[in-house]
Structure formats: C-alpha cells, structure tokens
C-alpha cells in the first residue's frame, strides 16, 4: 500500500503541490488535470526523483526515502519524456534496462519478447529504434515499465502519441495489470480514465480536489448539462453569453450546443443530457 501523507512541493518560490494526501491500494488511479497542474511533479515524488518539502510518502508504512534500492526495485516508471538509444533495437534496449533493473538473466529473452508482444511491437523487435514513429517509441517505454512485474506502475502520460487502436489495447492492458498492483497514470485525455474502473484523482490549485470513481464524478453534474439545437448565429451568441458552453457540433445543417447550467434555462427545445467526465473536466477547470 502506498500512502502519500500531507505532501507539499515547491520549485523555488513557486508552490506546485500543497498538502496532498492519498491512500492507494491495488487498482488503477488516473491522475487527471490540465497542463502544468503538477501531475509530473507528483509522480516524480512517488518514484523518488524529487523529495517533498513537507510530508512523507510511505510504502507499507515505511518512508520511501529510507528504502532506497529495495523500493526502486518494485517500481515500473514511464517518464513523460522517454529517452532511448537510437541505434538500439527494442530487444537490445530492454535487455540493457533489465540489467539496470537487476532482473535475473534466465528467461529474460522470453520476457522481453512477451512484453514487446503485449504492446504490439513483436514484428519490429529487431529494428533499430531510429526508424520508429513517436507512438512506437512510446510503446517501447510502456514495455520497459512492464518488465519485471513491478508492484507499483507509474506511467506519466502513457497514451501520448498512441492511435485509437493502440489506446484501446493499452486500456485493456492496464485494466488487467491493475488487478494485482497499484497503477497510477497521468493524463489530460478524459477518455483514458473514463471507461476503466478505478479512481480518478484531480488536482486543482495545488490541491487534490477529487478522489472518486469516474461515475461518481459524473453524477456531480447530474441535471446540469443540457443540449439545444440553435438555428441562427444570434441565438447561439446569446446562449454563449448566458451559459458555460461545453461543446458545439454541427448536425444536419444546424448547430447543437452543449452547455452547463445550474438550473434549466427554460428555453424551447432544451434537452437534459447525461453528463460525462469531459463535462466535469471543463466545468472544473473553466
């Protein structure tokens, strides 16, 4: 069990995280917040790349600062900027990283091919990474974090650069992985955390403001999200002035506006909609 207890972190004078406390059990945690909210900072604190100014991070009750290599051994980490050696093939690279992770050499080759297969790279396993696309590199990064069956998987924006098919594959993979370990992933892509069961952690103004399941979060906006079909631009402009617009789309020649309102606006054609996580994100960080 990982406990984050009253952790604060500043860069110089700039406070980025303030008094964050979370208890994490096996399962999936999606850290959802806009750019610059401090997601990477929180994850770096967990992997001990940064030290908290105040507060503590505990693994099964022991402060992680004190655990050193025996704590790092149980971590699989994907940094937001994933570095690699261009002239290595994924197999060579993973083989080298396995040595740094101190993994046993027997059965390693099979393990490497199996993680490469999990991320869908088995057919380019022996191609130099110089020739890889951004999404392929990202998947090597994910494979690297999966190697070694870590108890704690920390993934900083793992879905960045993945196409929809790979994203779906990744979601299934993570759902599977989170059954018997703690998986924390950061993202600002709402759909990454919406469909998987698990908790959504939201940061705002340096604080942890939500720690709930996606459906519980959505129910906060129950009865407050509406859609309306507008015919003229004037009508649309008037609505935009009055209400917080969540999205607009074109359908059969006319425009449909989705908006947030505490009470029904009492307009003709107004339709109550089931809220989704994206609505909550937009309302929360408006």
């Amino acid at each position: 069990m990982l406990t984050i207890s009253e952790v604060s972190k500043s860069y110089g004078k700039k406070r980025v995280l303030d008094d964050i406390s979370i208890e994490l059990e096996n399962g999936l945690y999606g850290l959802l917040a806009p750019n610059g909210a401090g997601k990477t900072t929180l994850l770096k604190l967990i992997v001990t790349l940064l030290s908290p100014d105040r507060g503590e991070i505990l693994w099964n009750g022991a402060p992680v600062q004190k655990l050193g290599a025996s704590y790092r051994e149980i971590i699989g980490y994907l940094p937001q900027q994933f570095g690699y050696y261009k002239y290595n093939t994924p197999v060579q690279y993973l083989d080298y990283l396995a040595a740094l992770k101190g993994l046993p050499r027997e059965g390693l080759k099979e393990k490497i091919f199996s993680v490469l297969d999990t991320v869908g790279l088995s057919d380019v396993a022996q191609v130099k990474m110089r020739k890889f696309s951004g999404g392929m590199i990202q998947r090597v990064g994910i494979a690297q974090a999966l190697m070694g069956d870590s108890r704690l998987l920390i993934l900083d924006e793992p879905t960045a650069g993945l196409d929809p098919k790979e994203r779906a594959r990744f979601r299934n993979l993570i759902a599977e992985m989170s059954k018997n370990r703690i998986v924390i992933l950061s993202t600002h892509i709402v759909s990454d955390v919406e469909s998987v069961s698990g908790r959504v952690l939201m940061l705002k103004d340096r604080k942890l403001v939500r720690n709930q399941s996606a459906s519980a979060l959505c129910s906060e906006l129950e009865g407050k999200v509406f859609e309306i079909r507008v015919k003229t631009d004037d009508q649309a402009a008037a609505l935009k002035k009055e209400h917080f617009i969540l999205s607009e789309r074109n359908e059969a020649g006319s425009m449909i506006l989705r908006y947030y309102s505490e009470q029904p606006a009492g307009l003709e054609g107004e339709r109550l909609c089931p809220p989704n996580l994206e609505d909550l994100f937009l309302v929360m960080y408006r």
């Binding site: 290599a69 790092r72 980490y77 900027q81 570095g83 040595a99 992770k101």
Partner: peptide
Amino acid sequence: ENGVIELKQSFKYAFHYL
C-alpha cells in the same frame, strides 16, 4: 543527449551509483 538520466535514476541500480 539520449534523455535517459531520469529513467535510469528510477532503477534499482540508480544512475548516480552506476
């Protein structure tokens, strides 16, 4: 240049030790 320091620092044999 390869941008691997952060990643390596999170491993059992941390970058600084190596």
